[in-house]
Amino acid sequence: MMRFSVLDNLAAAIEGVGSEQFYPSMCEYLRGCLEFDNVIVVIFVGTNVPHIAHARHYGPDVFRFVDEQYLSGAYLLDPVYHFHLRRGDAGLYRLLDVAPDQFRSSRYYKWYYGRIGIFDEISVILPVSRNTTITISMGKDSSSESTFSQKAEEGLRKHKSVIMAVLKAHWNALDAPHLTIPRATSLADSLREELKGNHGISISTRQAEVALLILQGHSSPSIGSQLGVSTETVKVFRKQLYRRCDISSQAELFGLFMPMLGRANIAK
């Protein structure tokens, strides 16, 4: 009966290709492949504010902060958003597969993921053009108070080729225009301008880059790898940054920069 149900839902998704019913039907098909508590479809186009194509929760409303916090600026620190920007390969990924090495201990993780109550997440990530990525993130929350088992993940992976093929078919059926995204001011430079204008604090572009990587959850060695410098050099940048901002912790750094992220993005 379960197998028939999965095939039935797949048929509904295929019938919905190119229509507004596609993502709801696709997510029902996916739930037959992997038992999840919530699901959200996010479309990333260049550096634009993400588009939420579909969201559904079967327990507590884990998406209650999406509009006021995620879309207003928190997405700029999201690991999946940065995976999209660096044009990662299509596939099925757990959140920690694409996140920085210290993501779970970052202030951002505790502030956003800790508040929404998602315990685990597996995402379908599919770049569909040079600047567009479709993502479908399936989560576990307090409804089940557990993470996805390896067996459950392996069961989903058996459907990978079908999932990707149907998503590609939907995108092609939309005849979506290949949007040309204008070159944007770097986020680091936008934040420098915000910091100078609102707090009278001047920092270098490199110091702003280090600040963003710290907030994303990168350790000093990981930041060094990202920027092509030594760990010791990163520590020097970090000390200079904290001294310039008159702060002494990541929590204070987060408190200083987070309100500016949304405004900096709007300025692009």
Rank of each mutant, 00 (worst) to 15 (best):
L179A: 13
M1V: 04
D61R: 09
V6T: 09
A165H: 05
D89M: 13
T135A: 08
L256M: 03
K239F: 14
A211N: 06
I266H: 10
E194W: 10
A169N: 11
R94Y: 10
L126V: 05
S129L: 10
A11I: 04
K268Y: 08
Q69M: 13
A11H: 10
K140N: 04
R31D: 08
L227F: 07
C245D: 00
S25P: 00
V17R: 02
G228T: 05
A90L: 13
A184D: 13
I118F: 12
E15M: 05
H170Y: 13
G59F: 08
T135H: 07
S25M: 08
E35Q: 14
S230K: 02
G197S: 15
M1E: 09
N198M: 15
R115T: 12
R3Q: 15
L179T: 10
N9I: 05
I181A: 07
I43R: 15
L71R: 05
R183V: 15
A99N: 11
Q216F: 05
E145V: 08
R263N: 11
A251Q: 11
V45L: 12
K268R: 15
D189Y: 14
P127F: 10
G155W: 05
M1I: 03
G155R: 08
D189A: 11
A208M: 09
P221A: 02
H57C: 12
H51M: 13
Y113H: 02
D120P: 00
R192N: 06
V39S: 07
G16H: 00
M138G: 00
L195F: 01
P182Y: 02
L76W: 01
A173K: 06
E15A: 07
I118N: 10
H170I: 07
Y113D: 01
P60A: 01
I52V: 15
S190D: 09
K110I: 04
I14H: 04
A152L: 08
